[in-house]
């Protein structure tokens, strides 16, 4: 464990708790892409299948359990409890256009052709594009609530910090995982446009609105 990965994990935890809190407090999931949340749920479930079989540390097990629980709770709030506030007209990104290619790629490019490894690879590839429906929804509505933009900033920062963690681990531990690194770079690059808007607008107290 290194500081970059720890701060990255905490940023990730902050992001998903922020979103859950926003939906619960405002009793509305307006502006939130349910499709992205479903894909994040899939990411955690396929990645943390070894939750009960492969004990790494208390921290590792606890965080995995929290991520899965919060993801399921968020999906529940969006599609059940506050279903009336779900903006399905703007959440129209076709998930199958992401899940099918990612599933195929996981079969073709992986470290080990075993079920667990292919599911882990699928999870890594899916996570890199899971935010697309959310970014697409914001581009369609032309704006995002400030709390939603904080959620996105924390979520994007987590994987950016993981990239720094991978550089650190390469130089100090000689460890690297090309699949995670390439997918992590793609994932972070997808946030660049948002990061620019966040820094130039939200940090100056303005609302995040995309140029019409």
């Amino acid at each position: 464990m290194n500081i970059f990965r720890l701060v990255g994990d905490l940023s990730h935890l902050l992001a998903i708790l922020l979103l859950l809190w926003k939906i619960w407090k405002t009793r509305s999931c307006a502006g939130v892409s349910g499709k992205s949340q479903i894909m994040f749920g899939l990411v955690y479930i396929t990645r943390y299948l070894d939750l009960f079989t492969n004990f790494i540390s208390i921290y590792n097990t606890t965080m995995k359990a929290i991520f899965i629980a919060v993801a399921i709770a968020t999906i529940y709030l969006i599609y059940f409890k506050f279903k009336a506030t779900y903006d399905s007209n703007h959440d129209t990104f076709r998930m199958e256009f992401l899940i099918v290619p990612v599933g195929g790629l996981a079969f073709l490019v992986n470290h080990d052709f075993t079920a667990l490894e292919i599911l882990w690879t699928f999870s890594i590839y899916l996570e890199s594009v899971a935010i697309l429906p959310q970014l697409f929804m914001i581009s369609k509505t032309g704006e995002a609530e400030t709390i939603t933009s904080h959620y996105l900033f924390a979520l994007g920062s987590y994987r950016a910090l993981y990239i720094v963690n991978w550089v650190y681990r390469y130089y100090f531990e000689g460890f690297f995982d090309l699949i995670a690194i390439v997918a992590g770079c793609v994932q972070t690059i997808l946030y660049c446009d948002f990061f620019y808007l966040y820094v130039t607008k939200v940090m100056h107290g303005k609302k995040l609105s995309l140029p019409a």
């Binding site: 990965r5 790494i56 470290h111």
Partner: peptide
Amino acid sequence: PLDEEAKDEL
């Protein structure tokens, strides 16, 4: 290929 402990990241 990476050994098993490599999957220590979230």
